[in-house]
Simulated assay, not measured.
Amino acid sequence: MAGRTREPESTRTAERRGRGGRAPTEARDAPSEPSDPTRSRLGRLLRGSRRRTLLLALLLAVVLGGLGGWLLYGSPWLRVDRVAVSGTDVLTERQVREVAAVQEGGPLVSVDKEAVERRLRAELPRIREARVVRSWPNGIGLKVTERQPELVMKRAGIYVEMDREGVRFATAERRPKGVPLLVFELERSAVSTRHFGAEKLRQAAAKTAAGLPRPVRRAAETVRVRSYDDITVELTDGRTVLWGSAERPGAKAKSLTALMKAAKDAEHFDVSVPSAPAASGS
Rank of each mutant, 00 (worst) to 15 (best):
V133R: 14
L108E: 08
L186M: 10
A210P: 03
A206P: 01
G197Q: 13
E98G: 01
R134A: 07
K143N: 11
P125W: 01
R121W: 01
P176D: 08
D112Q: 11
T208V: 15
E199H: 08
T88F: 07
R94T: 12
A204H: 04
G87I: 10
L124Y: 03
V133D: 14
V102F: 06
R202N: 02
Q95W: 02
K154S: 08
V179P: 06
T208Q: 06
V167S: 08
F169G: 02
H195G: 00
Q203H: 03
R175M: 13
V133H: 03
R147F: 06
G178L: 09
R134C: 04
P137N: 05
R119A: 07
A190H: 01
V90F: 13
R194Y: 11
R118E: 13
F184G: 00
D89F: 09
R217V: 00
G139E: 12
V191A: 15
A205N: 06
K207Q: 10
R202Q: 08
R147V: 01
Q95T: 08
L91H: 08
R174W: 07
D89I: 02
G139N: 01
I158K: 13
V133W: 03
E114V: 10
E221P: 00
P180H: 09
E146C: 09
A156P: 00
L182K: 05
V179D: 05
K177T: 09
R118F: 01
V183R: 12
E165A: 12
P213R: 08
R147A: 10
R226S: 07
L91M: 10
V216Y: 09
A101D: 15
A170H: 06
A209N: 06
V152R: 10
R217A: 13
A210S: 14
G141F: 00
S192M: 02
E187S: 10
R175A: 12
V152Y: 09
G105R: 07
E104A: 06
L212N: 09
K177Q: 11
V167L: 13
Q103Y: 00
N138M: 07
V99R: 02
K207D: 00
A190Q: 15
V225L: 13
A115V: 07
V223P: 07
A170N: 13
G105W: 00
V85M: 04
A172P: 02
E185V: 03
P180G: 06
V102P: 05
A156R: 14
T193P: 00
K113S: 11
G211N: 05
L120Q: 07
V152C: 03
S110V: 03
Q103K: 11
G166D: 09
G106N: 01
L91W: 11
R94N: 05
V133G: 05
G106M: 02
I127N: 13
P215T: 04
R119Q: 13
A101G: 12
K200N: 11
E221R: 15
E173R: 12
S110T: 08
A100C: 08
R94A: 14
V96D: 04
A220V: 00
